[in-house]
Nucleic acid binder design. Structure first.
Lengths: 335, 335
DNA sequence: AAATCAGAGCTAAACGTTTCGCGATTGAAG
DNA sequence: CTTCAATCGCGAAACGTTTAGCTCTGATTT
């Protein structure tokens, strides 16, 4: 059906080997070069990437595995990964595992079986064993957003601890003393780190933590909604709340609207991640902003670097800084 | 490095052909079956999909091309496409073209060169020529969300005309007579269809359209923001506004918040698409909801059907219904 | 007992490339 | 005019599968 390298050889009278050489940037006589190019045009020849892959043992494809497709934080990262990869001639096979740790393993294996040249993963469950096994086979692998204990591997993280520290410090320096936190579940790396920041800043300011102000959600909209309600129904509600991810921030805002809580007069709020959301709620929300573009870029470049065989400072551990975007959802209680 | 079918043959003492037969579901003696399975386990053998692809001329991969990665409408569709495909053993190569019609062609060719078994595309520019060329080569191709003039091809659409009709009719029957619309650009199929609905319902109710109430945006946040401001700065502003996509709805809400427009007392609002957003704004927004899950499923199933060679009622044209989700952002002006 | 047949396994070619090692050609150097 | 190195092209093997068509075995039929 489609023209092959053989057809080009026949058309030009040259051998297959010479055509292949040309295709891969080798030197051919000027005269032959023109001839080959003419043939390629005339026959509409395209390299068969599969056949090439069989010989070279490369698929020019990177597998990307994320927890959930309907999560803007993840898809934004993926978007930036893809930008970098495609510029380098690589394509992306994208999978999500719907926050299901069994599915996570399955999809991971799926990617491995697809013989991708590298994998970028935002891990969740105890997939460490699988990953180590692949690392042994020398397939480049990059962890994003969450570290995995006991796995020696390039990792791109956000400095979650300091993100929380700065957010809560912002509240403390404005006079808040009862600060609620809506935190994520124990099994997620970022949740724990973000909670740590909350704890540490309390220590540094010699403030005792009231455990009833620490609400544990599931990182989804519903739990954000529930936790905010719980906080507001306390006998002595907090004067401020810090919510540690995007979905729960959404849920919390829903609850705030329904309860007619006045922000920031009744409650100061610091949320997470989404710039647009921050602007469409009233008043505009002070939020922690993660460097999603950077995360994607660094992840992609790291995997490309390893594929090229550059193993300098392996395993690398990058920690990117967040930013506290200050808007009008925090009240200054001083004076 | 990795075990091949040859190694399995050697291990079992059988021939390559028999192993291959087993792998592809052929009959082998019970005794040999066990032996082969043991060998596969012992050698950790995995089929080399690339080699297989070379023989079968299949990559078991579907290309998906969307306008923009940072758009929840598109990514939700992709998510549902991927669900269906992976269940059928296919993987997805995902690209976006950042709303750039040149990039659109490039990425389309990229997918073709990757020799995907089928393509699902949400088109924008004049890519019709390219698509027709591929259709001639019999590669299954499904258009989503936007029809392409002059291209005979399976197409999955949303009934945009009626979506608009119903939304605006909802406003009319509640006594609104000056209804603004923030519409998308001319070169986008859905924009035009949505505008048509607005026009037709006006006709059906014998209402004249005030052209100054029709604001043309670019389907992005900024233009929604700008258009809403323009509407409110008119000498006689509309009593209601209908915004025809998600991003512009976001922008419009930002403007509403900044101007301190009271919804629905100063202005009734109907937006588009996102359920979460609808709930986090105050009051909850009445919106047009598109059946994104369904779109993805139908698109994936259609491409799979064609790949299997089932060409029944080709080209198929599916039009899915939207829903008007009624909340509290529309005021009843009657008596 | 001969003829027939089904089922299982095997041989070998093929898919479209890359690449190794060799031969041919050319032009410069001696 | 010979030699040598450099350059370019070629033949052939290889990558790991699938598959058409054949052989072999043993059971069934007549």
């Amino acid at each position: 059906m489609a023209a092959t390298i053989k057809d080009v050889a026949k058309y030009t009278g040259l051998s297959i080997a010479t055509i292949s050489k040309y295709l891969n940037g080798g030197n051919v006589l000027e005269e032959n070069r023109k001839l080959i190019e003419e043939a390629i045009r005339a026959l509409d020849f395209k390299v068969n990437e599969i056949a090439r892959g069989l010989k070279t043992n490369k698929t020019m494809t990177i597998g990307v595995l994320i927890p959930d497709f309907n999560n803007l934080f993840f898809t934004t990262i993926v978007s930036n990964i893809e930008n970098v990869l495609i510029k380098n001639g690589y394509s992306t096979i994208l999978c999500d595992y719907k926050n299901d740790i069994e599915l996570e393993k399955e999809k991971f294996n799926f990617l491995v079986n697809k013989q991708v040249d590298g994998i970028i993963i935002i891990p969740q469950g105890d997939i460490g064993g699988y990953i180590k096994e692949q690392l042994k086979k020398n397939i480049p692998l990059v962890l994003v957003d969450r570290a995995l204990e006991d796995v020696e591997c390039d990792t791109i993280l956000v400095d979650n601890m300091n993100a929380s520290y700065n957010a809560v410090e912002h509240l403390i320096t404005r006079g808040h003393r009862r600060i609620g936190i809506i935190r994520g579940p124990d099994n997620i790396f970022t949740s724990i780190e973000r909670l740590k920041g909350y704890i540490r800043v309390h220590k540094d300011y010699s403030m005792k933590i009231d455990e009833s102000l620490v609400k544990k959600g599931d990182n989804d909209v519903e739990s954000g909604y529930r936790c905010l309600n719980e906080l507001m129904e306390m006998d002595v509600p907090p004067t401020a709340v810090y919510i540690t991810n995007y979905e729960m921030t959404l849920g919390a805002i829903m609850a705030i609207n329904e309860r007619n809580v006045k922000v920031p007069d009744d409650l100061s709020v610091i949320g997470f991640d989404n710039l647009h959301i921050a602007r469409i709620v009233k008043p505009p929300l002070t939020i922690v902003v993660q460097p999603m573009e950077q995360i994607g870029e660094v992840a992609a470049n790291t995997v490309l670097k390893r594929i090229k065989g550059d193993m300098s400072n392996y395993p690398s551990m990058v920690r990117l800084k967040t930013e506290l975007m200050i808007n009008q959802s925090v009240k200054d209680l001083r004076g």
